[in-house]
Amino acid sequence: MDWDVVLESFPLIWKGASKTLSLFAWSLAFGTLAGLAVALMKLSTTKSVSRFATLFSWLFRGIPLLILLFFAFFALPEVGWLLSPFWAAVLGLSLWTAAYQAEVIRSGIIAVDLGQTEASDALGMTRSHSMKRIILPQGIRIMLPPFTSNATTLLKQTSLATLVTVPEMTLLTQRIFSNNFKFIEPIFVLAMIYLAMTTVLVVGQQIAERAFRLKT
């Protein structure tokens, strides 16, 4: 074993890791916001709105993520929309995340007892107020486990951004072994860093679940 290779390349790995994290953070933020919008649209009683949302989640859950990234990076410039590799990757990852989180958020909302909506209605609250104050806070408890599992998948899938030339952790690690012809150590370290990052998410889920647990 030659861990020196890894130690020497530590600054490079660190740079890649921070790129990975910002890909993840932007995509999760955009993906969750868009996912919330799509979930609410899918629950809309206006047919055209709910159909659009259904189409959205069908489309972006049905196409491989890698193809979405290729589309954002290679195809969009051809129609005059040039994005940097980083933002092209964020776009693809966000659409993909939105489609999955929309289903998670929707299932959390519809799992909240209908009596909660009725009580809010009977008190004269607007639907947007009851969604914000009554329904979503209760739904979050139900959404947390699948939401976190989607987020974990997203974190790992950022590695695909390698293929649209984003200098994230996986790409930079490949650079180490193509320079040194040492594989085991860099790949091992790479795997461990991903594992550490996803562990933080899982721990975060447990803390959040405790915070949203109903007081009995």
Binding site: E118, A119, I134, Q138, L214
Partner: peptide, 8 residues
């Protein structure tokens, strides 16, 4: 009948 209090 089932109260429908906001449990949170």
């Amino acid at each position: 009948q089932r109260f429908n209090l906001f449990p949170h």
